[in-house]
């Protein structure tokens, strides 16, 4: 089964991922797809429900900020191990537009070998692929303790005094 982690600790997932077509409960925390949100938002956004969105990695997030920034949770998709589009979505949402809710990584690439990059791009929770060992995943956040990003010019002794 898939485990959810944050900073290396396993969390209980209190969000319900609602399949398209499945009837929503009256209260609680729900994740719905971007398409469903667009079709049914007036029914879903009633106040009794907390609604998070599962976004396709093809979505231009900057064109949809009005919908996205106020959400308590956004789940971004890694549909295959090598499809890195959601890295740019996360960077835009978190770093440029200061999205403040939970940014959750989901899909096939949510494995120990990519977690550290995901966190650097602004993800804070990770729905691990079901073959992943959460302890090994937690360790991977410390694989590389240094980085040239976001700004190599502030490091590496290039700008003295800004070490």
């Amino acid at each position: 089964m898939s485990l959810l982690i944050r900073d290396g600790a396993v969390l209980s997932d209190d969000w319900l991922l609602l399949a398209d077509g499945e009837a929503p409960p009256k209260t609680g925390k729900l994740i719905v797809s971007w398409d469903r949100w667009n079709a049914e938002r007036t029914d879903l956004d009633l106040g009794a429900l907390e609604v998070g969105l599962l976004l396709p990695n093809t979505l231009d997030v900057t064109a949809a900020l009005g919908d996205l920034l106020g959400r308590p949770l956004l789940a971004l998709s890694f549909p295959s191990f090598s499809d890195g589009r959601a890295y740019s979505q996360a960077t835009l949402l978190r770093r440029r537009h200061h999205y403040a809710g939970e940014l959750r990584a989901t899909g096939q690439a949510v494995v120990r070998d990519q977690l550290q990059q995901m966190r650097t791009c602004g993800f804070d929770t990770f729905l691990l692929r079901n073959d992943q060992n959460p302890e090994l995943c937690a360790k991977s956040f410390h694989d590389l303790t240094v980085a040239y990003q976001p700004n190599l010019l502030n490091i590496s002794g290039l700008r003295p005094g800004k070490h």
Binding site: S82, D83, G84, Y87, S88, T91, A109, Q114, Q116, Q117, M118, T120, C121, L144, A147, Y148, Q149, L152, S156
Partner: peptide, 15 residues
């Protein structure tokens, strides 16, 4: 400069 910027760039490692 470019090499450092590009090395393990977290956003651009899965192009």
């Amino acid at each position: 400069l470019t090499r450092q910027w590009a090395t393990f760039h977290p956003e651009f490692n899965w192009l």
